[in-house]
Each structure stands twice: as C-alpha cells, then as structure tokens.
Design a protein around this nucleic acid. Structure first.
Length: 289
DNA sequence: GTCCATGTTCTTTA
DNA sequence: CTAAAGAACATGGA
C-alpha cells in the first residue's frame, strides 16, 4: 500500500503553478474587472499599493507563468503577479459561492472572452492563503523576472553546468535557489536528483558533465510528467477549477522515508538540509557517482 | 500547550 | 569583501 495519510501541506512548485495558469488562462483572457475587494492589505507588495483603482475597468490581456509566479498582463500594459507561497489557492468561483475563510483578495469579472457557448456570466477570481506566505506584487511596467534564474524547462545543459560550477553548495541547496534556477521546490528537487541518480549532498561544482546532462534531462522529464498529472496534491493544492493534482502517487522519494525505493527496494532515507527535509535512495544516489 | 511543514527574505556567521 | 548557513515569518494539524 502506498497511500499514507495526507499529513503535510502542499507547496505549489512549477508544475502546480503551471497547472493553475493553464486552467486560469481561458477564463481570464479578455475578461474585464468590474470590482476588487481586498480583505487584507498586507498581502500587497510594494506596501501601500492601491490595487483596486489599478485593476478596475481593465481587461486581462494574458496570464503567464514565470518561475512560481502567476503573471497577469493588463490591457494597459501594466503587470502584477500572484505568488501562492505555501498554502495559496487561486480559484474561479461563482459570485454566489460563499467565500472560504482566509480569502484575502477577490477580483470580480464581468465575463469571459470568446465564450463559445451559453451566456456570458460574471465570475470571481479569489485568492486565499491561510498561511500568508504568498501575496500579490504590483509590477507596473516592470518585467516579472527580478532576482530569478532561468526557466528549467528550456534550460540548456551548458548553462546548467556553468551555473552549478559557480558554487560548492550541495546540489540540493543549489536547485532550491531561485536565483540559480527558478521554479523547483523541495518536492521536485528531490525527485529530479533521484532520477538523475545524484546524491543530494554532492557539491554542485563536483558534478561531472555527463551527470549535469543527466540532471538537466531529469529536471525536464520530471516537470513535464508532473505538469501532465496536473501537479502534486498533498492536501491543499487545487487548480483554478478546484481540482486536485495526481502526481503525488508517482513520487519516487519525497515523503517516502523508510519506504522501499521503487527501483532497488532499498529504504529511502530522510535527512535535513538547510532546514528542509531531503529524501533520497542511499543505493541509487551515491556520493560522487 | 509543542513540534512540524514550507518559500522567500533578512540576518548572522565563516 | 563574499559565500553560505541560519532565523524569521504564519498557522493548521498531529
């Protein structure tokens, strides 16, 4: 049996954020903001941003993902992004649906553009985040990639090799560093290292070129599989339509301490690195190859 | 009541 | 000085 009780929170990483963007895009593109309700001003950055007048009357031109950020571009060229933090949810709901607790921001839309069937109906985009590690950042005309490394899905092995060669930190820590590589979090960093058969404590600059290439392939493969499964849901994650993801059952190592490795049956080991749990197979992932 | 999970940002240490 | 490690943040559930 591989269905342990759902204990841990889910933190949205690249595949989960991509899933939200993919489900949001057809609803939001072309839709017009008619009202904004901000229940908590402290989720806004920069502090003091007066969001409602910036949004009201505007139309959404596009919704995109950059790293773990959901980036909205308005018809006036201004941008803002929402980060889901640890427990953030961004959902499209009926105006009649009672808001869940910890709903910090509600954007009321008039209609969805290019709706092919049925009457255009108003809807709410609601952002809730019990733990409030997430938030809304107003960019104005600025780009959304401040302090972010390259996107893993389009990363070339030579670029990854150059980035990893610049630091002695353990590879697991480097993969979590968003200024190095943007989008991986604790779950997928562990999963990628397992697939590439690299020990998480390996100093980044001691990974051989062939292993870097294998890691690059593992990152792309893992993220694509997770996106196809609509992300991992441990407890909280849902897409914009409120649906949970299905990748959790496929995790090879994350949250599987003491369970048998899916490849060699060795018990998965859990260590703490930089204050974060790190799971790996001590047989498949040997230090220094 | 205690401990834990997590991403980002800020602070401290080497 | 730089790089890396550590603390703080919030909060529901075990």
């Amino acid at each position: 049996m591989d269905a342990p009780p759902e204990r841990k929170l889910h933190v949205p990483e690249l595949p989960e954020v991509q899933t939200v963007v993919t489900t949001l895009r057809p609803r939001l593109t072309g839709a017009r903001v008619v009202a904004v309700h901000l229940a908590r001003a402290d989720i806004l950055s920069p502090a003091g941003t007066d969001l409602p007048p910036l949004l009201t009357g505007r139309t959404v031109a596009s919704v995109d993902r950059r790293a773990k950020r959901i980036v909205f571009t308005l018809d006036d060229g201004n941008r803002f992004y929402i980060h889901l933090g640890m427990t953030g949810q961004l959902t499209v709901e009926s105006p009649e649906a009672p808001p869940k607790n910890h709903t910090h921001l509600t954007i009321e839309f008039a209609e969805a553009a290019r709706r092919m069937t049925g009457p255009a109906r108003p809807f709410h985009l609601r952002f809730r985040d019990p733990r409030r590690f997430g938030g809304v950042t107003w960019l104005g005309a600025d780009a959304a990639d401040q302090n972010l490394g390259p996107e893993p899905l389009t990363l070339r092995p030579a670029r990854l090799a150059k980035l990893l060669g610049q630091t002695r930190r353990p590879i697991k820590s480097a993969l979590l560093d968003q200024t190095m590589l943007a989008g991986l979090g604790n779950i997928y960093a562990d999963e990628c290292l397992f697939l590439a058969r690299i020990h998480p404590l390996t100093p980044s600059n001691q990974i051989a070129a062939e292993q870097v290439a294998a890691l690059n392939r593992a990152i792309k493969l893992t993220l694509r599989r997770a996106i196809r499964a609509k992300g991992s849901t441990l407890r909280d994650f849902v897409d914009a339509d409120g649906a949970a993801g299905g990748y959790r059952q496929k995790h090879a190592v994350y949250d599987r301490a003491a369970e048998p490795c899916r490849r060699c049956k060795t018990a998965i080991v859990r260590i703490v690195l930089t204050g974060r749990s790190t799971c790996f197979c001590p047989n498949c992932q040997r230090a220094n190859g």
